[in-house]
């Protein structure tokens, strides 16, 4: 039976009351999971008392208009999940990276051009979603690839042209999303991510792959290696046509090792930047 939502007695201040109501209710029942998505929130100040609710384990603020995150958010030290998807965030406080229990951080569809220095210090972070931002390789902090606990790193819809070889340090990485960046080349170190089972490379400017990729289990039923929308050299394109297991065999072959070495010294012509990307809404300041 659906219960009629209690009618707000402050219809003129709907924007405030929506978030406030959730917070009041959550405080009353000590709900550790806070759903504040799509509540027209633009600043943390609007969410009175939120930063005192230290017992909460999940904070979902997606589909709001938040521009900045206060360092004090890190005081909610029981948080395991912070979801800030689809906001207007341009900058993040370093303090988040010291949150002791934070496992899942969703910052997708925001306006990040960079991450704060030292941002890779997260002690237990497992899933970091940075899809649909404006990040590129030189916008990453130096310790970014030291997040050894990371299982999933989503960097799709960003502006990476190269992936730093330090990627190999993410030993536990199972999912790497790089869909629709400007990638021209992948480091051979990607072959050292032995637990990788999902690799999203669609819509980049790649022409060849490191042979080391063939060492990964690309064709199991749990694996998803997405390679469409690149300007592959003909032998790779041909094998891809036949199927991912054919490509994997080919990448491991002696023939390809020679081809690869030739590609390294005599780079194939780079395709132009992807179309449509400049219109990304997150680029509009």
């Amino acid at each position: 039976m659906a219960t009629a939502p209690s009618v707000s007695c402050l219809p003129h201040n709907a924007k405030m009351s929506k978030a406030k109501k959730v917070l009041d209710e959550a405080r009353e029942i000590q709900n550790p999971e806070l759903d504040l998505f799509d509540k027209n929130v633009s600043t943390f100040e609007e969410m009175t008392g939120l930063l005192n609710m230290t017992y909460i384990t999940r904070l979902t603020l997606s589909h709001n208009a938040i521009k900045s995150v206060p360092p004090g958010l890190a005081n909610l030290s029981n948080l395991e999940i912070i979801n800030l998807a689809n906001n207007q965030i341009e900058e993040l406080p370093l303090s988040l990276s010291s949150m002791p229990k934070l496992r899942i951080l969703n910052l997708s569809i925001n306006k990040l051009y960079s991450l704060p220095r030292g941002f890779g210090a997260f002690p237990v972070l497992e899933v970091l979603d940075l899809t649909y931002n404006n990040l590129k390789e030189d916008a990453l902090p130096g310790n970014f690839f030291l997040m050894g606990t990371l299982r999933a790193l989503y960097l799709g819809d960003n502006d990476f042209e190269y992936l730093p070889p330090e990627i190999k340090n993410l030993k536990n990485l199972e999912i790497l999303g790089l869909r629709e960046n400007d990638l021209l080349e992948l480091p051979k170190e990607i072959g050292e991510l032995t637990r990788l089972k999902e690799l999203h490379l669609q819509g980049n400017r790649l022409t060849f792959l490191p042979p080391d990729l063939g060492q990964l289990d690309m064709s199991s039923n749990k694996a998803a290696f997405r390679l469409e929308g690149n300007k592959w050299i003909p032998p790779i394109a041909d094998q891809l046509q036949l199927g991912i297991s054919h490509l994997q065999d080919y990448l491991k072959s002696e023939t390809y090792r020679i081809t690869y070495n030739r590609c390294l010294t005599n780079k194939p012509e780079a395709p132009p930047p992807c179309e449509g990307k400049p219109k990304k809404t997150c680029r509009t300041r």
Binding site: N86, Q202, A224, T281
Partner: peptide, 26 residues
Amino acid sequence: ECDLKPVCKKCYEKFPKELRNRLRRQ
């Protein structure tokens, strides 16, 4: 699905239009 992540219909409809277009195309 977006990058093999599940996205509910409501959320998907709140995605930027150009992103939805690209995802749909893809």
